[in-house]
């Protein structure tokens, strides 16, 4: 069948985008998604090459296979974009996210929060007599699970970086 079928399966893809770090570049990327009604689940960006002023953006998006193909083609067309790699299809990869999680409690709950943090291999970044700030890294699912566990234990705030992803093995993007 050569014509688009509805409903199509929805897939989750992680893309790495190498861009010139110049003003407006993020607006171009985000505008592409918002203008066409595509999804952004997570987006992270930071300069990765200070001499060449290159930033790497990691975008997690969902869509039908045709939409995913479109997103990749449209991202590649943006003038300051050097390269787009669909990490999800390119091969095995590592996806990590960092979260800072503030929990406020005393007594039993405080002890339980501390115990769980250890079980998740979190770090303690700040402590008062009635609160902790935990730092957790891992795949997004692990962080989701930890946040859920903290909810009844006095969860106050969550700050998450969004996903950073990279291919396994020796090759660059």
């Amino acid at each position: 069948m050569s014509v688009m079928q509805k409903p199509e399966t929805i897939e989750r893809h992680t893309m790495a985008v190498l861009v010139d770090n110049e003003s407006g570049v993020l607006a171009r990327i985000i505008g592409l998604f918002s203008g066409r009604g595509y999804n952004i689940e997570s987006l992270t960006v930071a300069e990765v090459d200070h001499n060449e002023h290159l930033s790497r953006i990691t975008i997690v998006t969902t869509g039908s296979p045709m939409v995913i193909e479109q997103i990749k083609a449209l991202l590649s067309k943006i003038v300051p974009v050097h390269k787009v790699v669909d990490i999800t299809v390119a091969g095995p990869s590592v996806e990590r996210e960092l979260a800072l999680i503030k929990v406020r409690s005393t007594g039993e709950k405080r002890v339980e929060a501390l115990r769980l943090n250890e079980a998740f291999r979190g770090r303690i970044m700040d402590t008062t007599l009635e609160s902790f700030v935990f730092e957790l890294t891992g795949d997004p699912g692990k962080i989701d699970a930890f946040v859920e566990l903290m909810r009844p234990l006095g969860l106050v705030d969550v700050a998450r970086t969004g996903v950073a992803a990279i291919a396994r093995g020796p090759e660059g993007m």
Binding site: S2, V3, M66
Partner: peptide
């Protein structure tokens, strides 16, 4: 779209990669 040229094989030449497979699969 779902009734567009139902029995044909489609060759699509376009300088814009995002035009290919946008709405009609080539």
């Amino acid at each position: 779209l779902d009734a567009f040229s139902p029995g044909s094989k489609k060759i699509h030449i376009d300088i814009d990669p995002s035009s290919i497979n946008k709405t009609v699969r080539a």
